[in-house]
Protein backbone atom coordinates (compact mmCIF):
# COMPACT_ATOMS: atom_id res chain seq x y z
CA UNK A 1 0.00 0.00 0.00
CA UNK A 2 1.54 3.23 -1.04
CA UNK A 3 -0.13 5.43 1.50
CA UNK A 4 -0.68 5.54 5.19
CA UNK A 5 -4.02 6.58 6.49
CA UNK A 6 -5.30 8.35 9.52
CA UNK A 7 -8.73 9.28 10.66
CA UNK A 8 -9.40 12.97 10.31
CA UNK A 9 -12.27 13.29 12.72
CA UNK A 10 -13.50 11.03 15.47
CA UNK A 11 -17.14 11.25 14.60
CA UNK A 12 -16.62 10.02 11.05
CA UNK A 13 -16.68 6.47 9.84
CA UNK A 14 -13.71 6.54 7.55
CA UNK A 15 -13.56 3.51 5.32
CA UNK A 16 -10.29 4.65 3.79
CA UNK A 17 -8.51 3.62 6.96
CA UNK A 18 -6.71 0.30 6.49
CA UNK A 19 -7.98 -2.08 9.13
CA UNK A 20 -5.54 -3.98 11.28
CA UNK A 21 -5.29 -7.61 10.25
CA UNK A 22 -3.36 -10.54 11.59
CA UNK A 23 -0.39 -10.79 9.26
CA UNK A 24 0.22 -14.47 9.87
CA UNK A 25 -3.22 -15.32 8.57
CA UNK A 26 -2.69 -13.35 5.39
CA UNK A 27 -6.43 -13.18 5.07
CA UNK A 28 -7.72 -10.06 3.44
CA UNK A 29 -11.41 -10.92 3.42
CA UNK A 30 -12.30 -8.43 6.15
CA UNK A 31 -10.30 -5.76 4.38
CA UNK A 32 -12.08 -6.48 1.10
CA UNK A 33 -15.43 -6.39 2.85
CA UNK A 34 -14.71 -2.91 4.20
CA UNK A 35 -13.62 -1.75 0.78
CA UNK A 36 -16.74 -3.05 -0.93
CA UNK A 37 -18.81 -0.20 0.52
CA UNK A 38 -17.45 2.78 -1.32
CA UNK A 39 -15.72 0.91 -4.14
CA UNK A 40 -14.09 3.71 -6.17
CA UNK A 41 -14.93 1.74 -9.31
CA UNK A 42 -18.22 3.65 -9.04
CA UNK A 43 -16.39 6.76 -10.19
CA UNK A 44 -15.47 4.94 -13.40
CA UNK A 45 -19.00 3.65 -13.72
CA UNK A 46 -20.29 7.23 -13.56
CA UNK A 47 -17.83 8.28 -16.23
CA UNK A 48 -18.83 5.29 -18.34
CA UNK A 49 -22.52 6.03 -18.08
CA UNK A 50 -21.89 9.55 -19.30
CA UNK A 51 -19.70 8.26 -22.14
CA UNK A 52 -22.43 5.83 -23.19
CA UNK A 53 -24.86 8.72 -23.62
CA UNK A 54 -22.47 11.30 -25.03
CA UNK A 55 -22.27 11.88 -28.78
CA UNK A 56 -18.60 11.44 -29.67
CA UNK A 57 -16.21 10.51 -32.43
CA UNK A 58 -16.13 11.39 -36.14
CA UNK A 59 -19.76 10.29 -36.46
CA UNK A 60 -20.80 12.32 -33.40
CA UNK A 61 -22.99 9.51 -32.12
CA UNK A 62 -23.76 7.99 -28.73
CA UNK A 63 -23.43 4.28 -27.90
CA UNK A 64 -27.11 4.01 -27.07
CA UNK A 65 -27.68 1.80 -30.14
CA UNK A 66 -24.84 -0.54 -29.23
CA UNK A 67 -25.99 -4.17 -29.18
CA UNK A 68 -24.20 -6.03 -26.41
CA UNK A 69 -26.09 -9.21 -27.24
CA UNK A 70 -29.50 -8.51 -25.72
CA UNK A 71 -30.61 -6.01 -28.37
CA UNK A 72 -29.67 -2.46 -29.28
CA UNK A 73 -29.01 -0.37 -26.19
CA UNK A 74 -29.85 -3.08 -23.64
CA UNK A 75 -27.30 -2.87 -20.83
CA UNK A 76 -28.85 -4.67 -17.82
CA UNK A 77 -27.72 -8.30 -17.70
CA UNK A 78 -25.63 -8.03 -20.88
CA UNK A 79 -22.21 -8.54 -19.25
CA UNK A 80 -23.32 -11.77 -17.56
CA UNK A 81 -23.82 -13.33 -21.00
CA UNK A 82 -20.50 -12.24 -22.46
CA UNK A 83 -18.38 -13.38 -24.24
CA UNK A 84 -20.83 -14.56 -26.90
CA UNK A 85 -20.97 -15.26 -30.60
CA UNK A 86 -22.38 -12.26 -32.50
CA UNK A 87 -24.11 -12.96 -35.79
CA UNK A 88 -23.34 -9.48 -37.21
CA UNK A 89 -19.58 -9.95 -36.90
CA UNK A 90 -19.65 -13.77 -36.95
CA UNK A 91 -17.09 -13.58 -34.17
CA UNK A 92 -16.87 -14.40 -30.51
CA UNK A 93 -16.50 -11.09 -28.66
CA UNK A 94 -15.97 -10.21 -25.02
CA UNK A 95 -17.38 -7.02 -23.53
CA UNK A 96 -14.30 -5.02 -24.40
CA UNK A 97 -13.99 -6.12 -28.01
CA UNK A 98 -17.75 -5.63 -28.47
CA UNK A 99 -17.62 -2.10 -27.06
CA UNK A 100 -14.64 -1.41 -29.30
CA UNK A 101 -16.69 -2.62 -32.27
CA UNK A 102 -19.59 -0.33 -31.26
CA UNK A 103 -17.24 2.63 -30.87
CA UNK A 104 -15.94 2.00 -34.38
CA UNK A 105 -19.23 1.30 -36.14
CA UNK A 106 -21.44 3.81 -34.32
CA UNK A 107 -19.01 6.58 -33.43
CA UNK A 108 -16.31 6.10 -36.05
CA UNK A 109 -13.53 5.74 -33.48
CA UNK A 110 -11.01 3.40 -35.13
CA UNK A 111 -10.38 0.17 -33.20
CA UNK A 112 -6.70 0.56 -34.05
CA UNK A 113 -6.54 3.50 -31.64
CA UNK A 114 -7.54 1.17 -28.82
CA UNK A 115 -5.59 -1.90 -29.93
CA UNK A 116 -2.40 0.11 -30.37
CA UNK A 117 -3.06 2.24 -27.30
CA UNK A 118 -2.09 1.79 -23.67
CA UNK A 119 -4.11 0.75 -20.65
CA UNK A 120 -5.38 3.68 -18.54
CA UNK A 121 -4.79 6.07 -21.46
CA UNK A 122 -6.95 7.81 -24.04
CA UNK A 123 -9.62 5.75 -25.81
CA UNK A 124 -8.62 2.56 -23.99
CA UNK A 125 -9.25 4.34 -20.67
CA UNK A 126 -12.64 5.47 -21.95
CA UNK A 127 -13.40 1.91 -22.95
CA UNK A 128 -12.54 0.79 -19.40
CA UNK A 129 -15.00 3.33 -17.98
CA UNK A 130 -17.68 1.97 -20.32
CA UNK A 131 -16.86 -1.53 -19.06
CA UNK A 132 -17.38 -0.32 -15.48
CA UNK A 133 -20.78 1.05 -16.47
CA UNK A 134 -21.92 -2.09 -18.29
CA UNK A 135 -20.75 -4.67 -15.72
CA UNK A 136 -22.34 -2.72 -12.86
CA UNK A 137 -25.66 -3.50 -14.51
CA UNK A 138 -24.93 -7.22 -14.26
CA UNK A 139 -23.77 -7.08 -10.64
CA UNK A 140 -25.23 -10.02 -8.71
CA UNK A 141 -26.37 -11.72 -11.91
CA UNK A 142 -25.44 -15.32 -12.59
CA UNK A 143 -22.73 -15.86 -15.15
CA UNK A 144 -24.63 -17.33 -18.09
CA UNK A 145 -22.64 -17.60 -21.29
CA UNK A 146 -24.03 -19.65 -24.15
CA UNK A 147 -21.50 -22.21 -25.35
CA UNK A 148 -23.75 -23.84 -27.94
CA UNK A 149 -22.42 -22.05 -31.04
CA UNK A 150 -19.56 -23.98 -32.73
CA UNK A 151 -17.32 -20.90 -32.55
CA UNK A 152 -17.94 -20.64 -28.82
CA UNK A 153 -17.16 -24.33 -28.43
CA UNK A 154 -13.93 -23.84 -30.33
CA UNK A 155 -12.97 -20.77 -28.29
CA UNK A 156 -13.57 -22.72 -25.09
CA UNK A 157 -11.37 -25.57 -26.31
CA UNK A 158 -8.66 -23.12 -27.38
CA UNK A 159 -8.92 -21.31 -24.06
CA UNK A 160 -8.45 -24.54 -22.16
CA UNK A 161 -5.40 -25.38 -24.25
CA UNK A 162 -4.00 -21.88 -23.78
CA UNK A 163 -4.53 -22.19 -20.04
CA UNK A 164 -2.13 -25.14 -19.90
CA UNK A 165 0.24 -23.77 -22.58
CA UNK A 166 3.72 -23.41 -21.14
CA UNK A 167 5.90 -20.87 -22.81
CA UNK A 168 8.11 -17.86 -22.24
CA UNK A 169 11.33 -17.27 -20.34
CA UNK A 170 10.16 -19.07 -17.21
CA UNK A 171 8.15 -21.99 -18.68
CA UNK A 172 4.96 -20.75 -17.05
CA UNK A 173 1.39 -21.46 -18.11
CA UNK A 174 -1.72 -20.01 -16.46
CA UNK A 175 -2.00 -23.44 -14.85
CA UNK A 176 1.38 -23.04 -13.12
CA UNK A 177 -0.30 -20.79 -10.57
CA UNK A 178 -4.02 -21.45 -11.03
CA UNK A 179 -4.54 -25.21 -10.90
CA UNK A 180 -4.39 -26.00 -7.18
CA UNK A 181 -6.61 -25.06 -4.25
CA UNK A 182 -5.54 -22.60 -1.58
CA UNK A 183 -2.19 -21.56 -3.05
CA UNK A 184 -0.56 -18.15 -2.88
CA UNK A 185 2.05 -16.14 -4.77
CA UNK A 186 3.61 -14.18 -1.93
CA UNK A 187 0.50 -12.97 -0.03
CA UNK A 188 -1.82 -13.06 -3.03
CA UNK A 189 -4.40 -15.82 -3.00
CA UNK A 190 -4.78 -17.61 -6.31
CA UNK A 191 -8.10 -18.96 -7.57
CA UNK A 192 -7.99 -22.55 -8.86
CA UNK A 193 -9.35 -21.90 -12.33
CA UNK A 194 -9.55 -25.61 -13.19
CA UNK A 195 -12.59 -25.79 -10.90
CA UNK A 196 -15.93 -24.02 -11.47
CA UNK A 197 -15.79 -22.11 -8.17
CA UNK A 198 -12.25 -20.90 -8.86
CA UNK A 199 -13.06 -19.94 -12.44
CA UNK A 200 -16.11 -18.04 -11.20
CA UNK A 201 -14.04 -16.32 -8.49
CA UNK A 202 -11.62 -15.11 -11.15
CA UNK A 203 -14.06 -14.26 -13.91
CA UNK A 204 -16.73 -12.91 -11.58
CA UNK A 205 -14.53 -10.45 -9.66
CA UNK A 206 -12.86 -8.62 -12.56
CA UNK A 207 -13.01 -5.88 -13.71
CA UNK A 208 -11.97 -4.42 -10.40
CA UNK A 209 -10.64 -1.34 -8.67
CA UNK A 210 -7.18 -2.00 -7.22
CA UNK A 211 -6.66 -0.07 -4.02
CA UNK A 212 -2.89 -0.67 -3.97
CA UNK A 213 -2.38 1.37 -7.14
CA UNK A 214 -5.69 3.27 -7.34
CA UNK A 215 -6.42 1.89 -10.78
CA UNK A 216 -9.46 0.34 -12.40
CA UNK A 217 -8.47 -2.79 -14.31
CA UNK A 218 -10.60 -4.59 -16.89
CA UNK A 219 -10.24 -8.32 -17.62
CA UNK A 220 -8.15 -7.52 -20.71
CA UNK A 221 -5.84 -5.55 -18.43
CA UNK A 222 -5.78 -8.37 -15.87
CA UNK A 223 -4.83 -10.98 -18.50
CA UNK A 224 -2.22 -8.67 -20.02
CA UNK A 225 -0.48 -8.32 -16.67
CA UNK A 226 -0.73 -12.08 -16.00
CA UNK A 227 1.18 -12.67 -19.24
CA UNK A 228 3.69 -9.97 -18.31
CA UNK A 229 4.46 -11.80 -15.10
CA UNK A 230 4.44 -15.08 -16.99
CA UNK A 231 7.31 -13.60 -19.06
CA UNK A 232 5.70 -14.17 -22.44
CA UNK A 233 5.69 -11.69 -25.30
CA UNK A 234 2.97 -9.03 -25.03
CA UNK A 235 -0.59 -10.18 -25.76
CA UNK A 236 -2.39 -7.97 -28.26
CA UNK A 237 -5.49 -6.18 -26.95
CA UNK A 238 -8.64 -8.24 -27.61
CA UNK A 239 -6.64 -10.89 -29.49
CA UNK A 240 -7.89 -14.47 -29.78
CA UNK A 241 -5.93 -15.72 -26.77
CA UNK A 242 -7.60 -13.15 -24.50
CA UNK A 243 -11.05 -14.03 -25.83
CA UNK A 244 -10.38 -17.78 -25.63
CA UNK A 245 -9.21 -17.58 -22.02
CA UNK A 246 -12.22 -15.43 -21.19
CA UNK A 247 -14.63 -17.96 -22.73
CA UNK A 248 -12.86 -20.76 -20.84
CA UNK A 249 -13.10 -18.95 -17.49
CA UNK A 250 -16.65 -17.67 -17.94
CA UNK A 251 -17.82 -21.01 -19.31
CA UNK A 252 -16.35 -22.91 -16.40
CA UNK A 253 -17.80 -20.37 -13.99
CA UNK A 254 -21.28 -20.49 -15.53
CA UNK A 255 -24.05 -20.34 -12.94
CA UNK A 256 -22.06 -18.52 -10.27
CA UNK A 257 -22.90 -15.00 -9.15
CA UNK A 258 -20.79 -12.14 -10.49
CA UNK A 259 -19.62 -9.36 -8.16
CA UNK A 260 -19.07 -6.51 -10.57
CA UNK A 261 -17.12 -4.38 -10.45
CA UNK A 262 -14.79 -5.98 -7.91
CA UNK A 263 -12.45 -4.33 -5.49
CA UNK A 264 -8.97 -5.67 -4.80
CA UNK A 265 -6.18 -4.69 -2.49
Amino acid sequence: MRKQFKAVALSLALAFAAPAFAQDELNFDAYREMLADGNPAELYEMEGEELWRTARGPKNATLEQCDLGLGAGVVPGAAAQLPRHFADTDRVQDLESRLMYCMETLQGIPSEQIIKGKFLKDERAKLAALVAYVVTHSNGEKIAIDLSHPKMKEMYALGEKAFYYRTGAMDFACSSCHSQDGKRIRATQLPNITKPEGAAAGWGSWPAYRVSNSQFWTMQHRLWDCFRQQRTAEPIFASDVTIALSVFMAGKGNGAEAVWPGVKR
Binding site: G168, P235, A244
Partner: peptide, 17 residues
Protein backbone atom coordinates in the same frame (compact mmCIF):
# COMPACT_ATOMS: atom_id res chain seq x y z
CA UNK B 1 -2.94 -18.50 -31.67
CA UNK B 2 -0.15 -18.44 -29.09
CA UNK B 3 2.04 -16.82 -31.74
CA UNK B 4 -0.40 -14.51 -33.53
CA UNK B 5 -2.13 -13.15 -30.45
CA UNK B 6 1.17 -11.74 -29.21
CA UNK B 7 3.60 -9.05 -30.25
CA UNK B 8 7.24 -8.46 -29.45
CA UNK B 9 7.88 -5.74 -26.89
CA UNK B 10 11.45 -4.90 -25.92
CA UNK B 11 13.27 -7.91 -24.52
CA UNK B 12 10.07 -9.97 -24.66
CA UNK B 13 10.37 -11.20 -28.25
CA UNK B 14 8.10 -13.58 -30.16
CA UNK B 15 10.72 -16.30 -29.69
CA UNK B 16 9.17 -16.68 -26.26
CA UNK B 17 5.94 -17.90 -27.87
Amino acid sequence: MMLKSFQANGIATLERQ
